[in-house]
Design a protein around this nucleic acid. Structure first.
Lengths: 137, 137
DNA sequence: ATCATAATGATAATCATTATCATCACCATT
DNA sequence: AATGGTGATGATAATGATTATCATTATGAT
């Protein structure tokens, strides 16, 4: 599905800033970008855009289910293209690298926990913090 | 252990603001408070304190291992007295109530995941978001 | 091509949090 | 109990992330 039709499907007009933001999220090596990251990359590519627009567009994309927001422990949100498959994160506290993982048994166990507490589950966020293989003294 | 000796043990002088902040965290019905919450409660109790001091003290308590910080999806950190036993959270997206849980199998599975990815685990944060039993239409 | 409407960019505003710094309180020592 | 050095406080300003405002501009249905 093209970005164009993706946007149409969620009621967003196809504009240059939206196309560019999506393109950066898709093509940037870094899968987890802050609004600021996206903005800077945009400037690198000699594209005109306002930082406010980046924030606005990312929020709209999140609302629309096109991207996913994560709040690690850094003080700013990071965004990534929403993949069809849910996953959680391993975050390196030294170099900041983020690895993704999916563990069915953890997922299943969460369902159980929620059910036991009478919670209707809507989502969850699991981040494991530590040091990646390159960052252990 | 009294707050007084607790503070001494971690190299913090025993001061009125620190005693009061700790007292509020201990006695407030709400276990997960923002700095602002603590500050307002302080004013309620007719105690003089600066908001900056609340932030400073909470950070020191966190450094010292006396309280634990959590970043749910609200944009501001919440603090709770650090209990000896680790736990994760179920957060109601409507009323904001927070329930705690501990699930050994999830914990164990996280260890496995980290090991497989070559990560040296330092901590983790698992929050399940949903609707508590009182908040389901 | 026209036009209503939504989107943009520049800017100001807000919110959470931290830094600064002069004044003040704690507490080990006298 | 008085003293003094050092750490702590409070008021304020500063910062960083994010959102609101609003006049101008671009999109897409007609």
């Amino acid at each position: 599905m093209s970005d164009r039709s993706q946007f149409r499907a969620v009621g967003l007009k196809t504009t240059l800033p939206r196309l560019k933001v999506m393109e950066i999220l898709e093509n940037s090596g870094e899968r987890h970008m802050t609004a600021e990251d996206v903005y800077k990359e945009m400037l690198n590519l000699k594209e005109e855009i306002g930082l406010g627009t980046v924030y606005r567009v990312l929020n709209q994309f999140e609302q629309a289910g096109l991207v996913e927001r994560n709040n690690f422990e850094s003080g700013s949100s990071v965004f990534e293209i929403k993949s069809d498959s849910h996953h959680d994160h391993l975050v390196c506290m030294k170099c900041g690298v983020v690895e993704e993982f999916f563990d069915p048994s953890i997922e299943a166990q969460q369902e159980k926990v929620a059910k036991m507490a009478g919670f209707q589950i809507a989502g969850h966020s699991l981040s494991i913090y530590g040091f990646c293989s390159d960052c252990q003294e």
